[in-house]
Amino acid sequence: MTTAQSPRPVPKRSRARTLVPLAVAVWLVLEIWLLTVVAEAAGGFLVLLLLVGAVVLGAVVMKSAGRRAFRNLTETLQRQQNPGAAAPEEATGSTGNGFLMLGGLLIMLPGLITDVLGLLLLLPPVRTTLGRYAERSLERRMRAAGPGTLGDAFQQARMRQPDGKVVQGEVIKEDGTPAPRPEDEGPRPPLTP
Rank of each mutant, 00 (worst) to 15 (best):
T2I: 15
T2N: 14
T2K: 08
S6G: 08
R8H: 02
P9K: 12
V10R: 14
R15W: 09
A16N: 05
R17I: 08
T18V: 11
L19K: 10
L19C: 13
P21W: 00
A23Q: 09
A25Y: 08
L34D: 04
L35E: 07
A42I: 15
A42H: 11
G44S: 10
F45A: 13
V47Q: 01
L49P: 00
L51H: 02
G53C: 09
V55T: 00
L57E: 03
G58N: 02
A59N: 11
A65N: 03
R67G: 07
E75C: 15
A87Q: 11
P88F: 00
P88S: 12
E89F: 09
E89Q: 07
E90I: 09
A91M: 09
G96V: 10
G104L: 04
I113S: 01
L117Y: 00
R127H: 00
T129E: 15
T129G: 12
R132G: 05
A134Q: 07
E139Q: 00
A145V: 06
A145I: 05
A145E: 00
G146S: 05
P147L: 14
T149I: 04
G151E: 10
A153F: 12
A153T: 15
Q156W: 09
A157C: 12
Q161Y: 13
G169S: 11
G169Q: 10
G169Y: 06
E170V: 14
E174M: 11
D175E: 13
G176R: 05
G176H: 08
P182D: 14
E185Y: 15
P190C: 06
L191G: 04
T192F: 09
